[in-house]
Each structure stands twice: as C-alpha cells, then as structure tokens.
C-alpha cells in the first residue's frame, strides 16, 4: 500500500434507536477519530443515523465464497427447523 494513502475503514450505522448497526460502505481516514468524523459527513448528511461504528477493514475476516456450498448448504435440507414444516389442525388456535 502507498504510504500516503490513509487506511480503509468500514462504516456501520444505527439508523434509529432499537435497530442494529448496518454496514453502509467504507472510507479512508488516518485514525479512528477521523474515521468517525468522516463517516458522519459522508454517510449521515440526511439524518440517516444516530450512532456510528467504524472498523479498520483489515480487521474484518470473511467467509470464503468458494466454500459457501459446504458452509451454508447443510441448512438447506432441515425444513423441520421452520414452523411451516408442522401441520396444525384448523381447530387449534393460538399456535
């Protein structure tokens, strides 16, 4: 990486109290304080958030798309994990 280029940060924003922080994009900043300030300017110009998290991108570890079948497919054949798998008689209420 070019030395003059500021590190990359991922930005997460809570849009209102009660909701979780959601990834909105990334930006460059020299340090965490500046990253939060820049995130305020870049991602919340129209009241999009009440709270900001920033994480330096190099600290994000991701699953590998090439492994996604082995990783996620086992969940596909377990329909019994969903309530719709079970038949409830029409006369039974509140279930």
């Amino acid at each position: 990486m070019n030395q003059s280029e500021w590190p990359l940060w991922e930005v997460f924003i809570r849009s209102k109290q009660g909701l979780d922080h959601k990834h909105v994009g990334s930006l460059h900043a020299a340090d965490a304080t500046m990253a939060v300030q820049n995130a305020r300017d870049v991602y919340t110009r129209r009241l999009e958030g009440v709270s900001i998290w920033v994480v330096e991108s190099k600290h994000i570890h991701a699953s590998n798309p090439d492994d996604s079948e082995a990783f996620f497919d086992p969940a596909a054949d377990k329909v019994y994990r969903h309530p719709t798998f079970y038949e409830v008689p029409d006369s039974i209420k509140h279930m």
Binding site: S4, W6, A29, A30, D31, M34
Partner: peptide, 8 residues
C-alpha cells in the same frame, strides 16, 4: 493528508 498521518 501528511499532517493527519503524523497526528495519528
């Protein structure tokens, strides 16, 4: 940009 790096 350089000053921000130095400050950080």
């Amino acid at each position: 940009r350089e000053a921000a790096n130095a400050h950080a």
